[in-house]
């Protein structure tokens, strides 16, 4: 009996300890999430909302701006994430070579971008990519281009500028994960392979990559989520409109515009938010599926 009473008291104490955190989490995380799901079925402008069933989802399929934003987001994801992951891997392998001089300096230099403020760096990048900015000046000075590139007036180059910026910002962040994982690999594995005559490319392809697979999966999922939420850079580069003519608008920027810039349609923007959730879920699932241990499941 005493045992049971003590248990209950322990339980109450336990719950009491976590209650403040739980209440805050519930109030500011779970409640808004559940509410946003409810909102996504509401139609109407401003505070004038009514239940619309699947109307918002129907609207998605006929909304050219949404389709544009979805397409742009996918373009950024498909082009930028692989480039960044491969770059980060190459940097990490290079920095893991003990014969490389000034490793600490390089490591810091590559990692530093991701501790800079998003606003600060995108402002600097915006001025660098300006028509008379340093990038155009430099490219013209070396005669790579004849006339300045309209980085923010040409739909193609605008996407390139954004991809360059986010790659600069996040490559070092991913590299650190690879570097940490590489440093955990027993050096004698590579020495054994060297003695056995396994060429350098094969050591990278058949030893490094498989051994880093869990980390590569992790960074890919994190980067996917990050790219699908891409907002700050586009907002800063294009003064919030995702231009030129919606060529850089992303889902997150569209949500922001729907909510705060246009006549607010909270319900519809909630629907678009849930699209991101669903897409992230599907992509992460696919990535886990691709990366799973085939031997185990076979």
């Amino acid at each position: 009996m005493a045992q049971a009473r003590l248990d209950r008291r322990d339980q109450i104490t336990g719950w009491a300890f976590i209650a403040p955190a739980l209440i805050l989490l519930g109030l500011f995380m779970i409640y808004p999430i559940v509410w946003s799901l409810w909102m996504s079925f509401q139609v109407g402008k401003g505070m004038n909302l009514s239940f619309g069933g699947f109307a918002n989802i129907m609207r998605l399929t006929k909304d050219p701006v949404f389709l544009r934003a979805l397409g742009n987001t996918f373009t950024f994801f498909i082009v930028q994430v692989p480039i960044m992951i491969v770059l980060a891997l190459l940097f990490a392998v290079a920095l893991n070579d003990s014969t490389l001089r000034f490793r600490g300096l390089f490591r810091t230099a590559i990692f530093l971008p991701c501790v800079t403020s998003l606003i600060a760096y995108s402002t600097v990048f915006k001025s660098m990519f300006a028509t008379d900015g340093i990038i155009n000046e430099a490219l013209m000075a070396v005669h790579l281009i004849g006339a300045p590139i309209g980085w923010f007036s040409d739909p193609f180059w605008a996407k390139v500028a954004i991809i360059l910026a986010i790659t600069w910002r996040w490559t070092g962040y991913n590299m650190i994960f690879y570097l940490a994982a590489l440093q955990n690999i027993d050096r004698s594995i590579y020495e054994a392979a060297r003695i056995d005559g396994v060429p350098a490319w094969a050591r990278f392809r058949y030893l490094t990559i498989p051994m880093l697979k869990p980390v590569i999966l992790f960074t890919t999922v994190i980067s996917t989520i990050g790219t699908l939420q891409l907002f700050d850079e586009v907002y800063n580069f294009t003064a919030g409109n995702g231009g030129p003519s919606d060529s850089t608008i992303t889902l997150s920027l569209y949500i922001y515009n729907l909510t705060f810039k246009f006549m607010p349609s909270f319900g519809y923007s909630a629907t678009v938010s849930w699209v991101i959730v669903v897409v992230v879920g599907i992509l992460s699932f696919l990535q886990f599926l691709v990366a799973r241990d085939r031997r185990r499941s076979a």
Binding site: D186, S188, I189, E191, A192, A193, L207, P210, M211, K213
Partner: peptide, 9 residues
């Protein structure tokens, strides 16, 4: 090698 240095995967 002392650590065996087997390819873990």
């Amino acid at each position: 090698f002392q650590s065996y240095a087997l390819y873990p995967h």
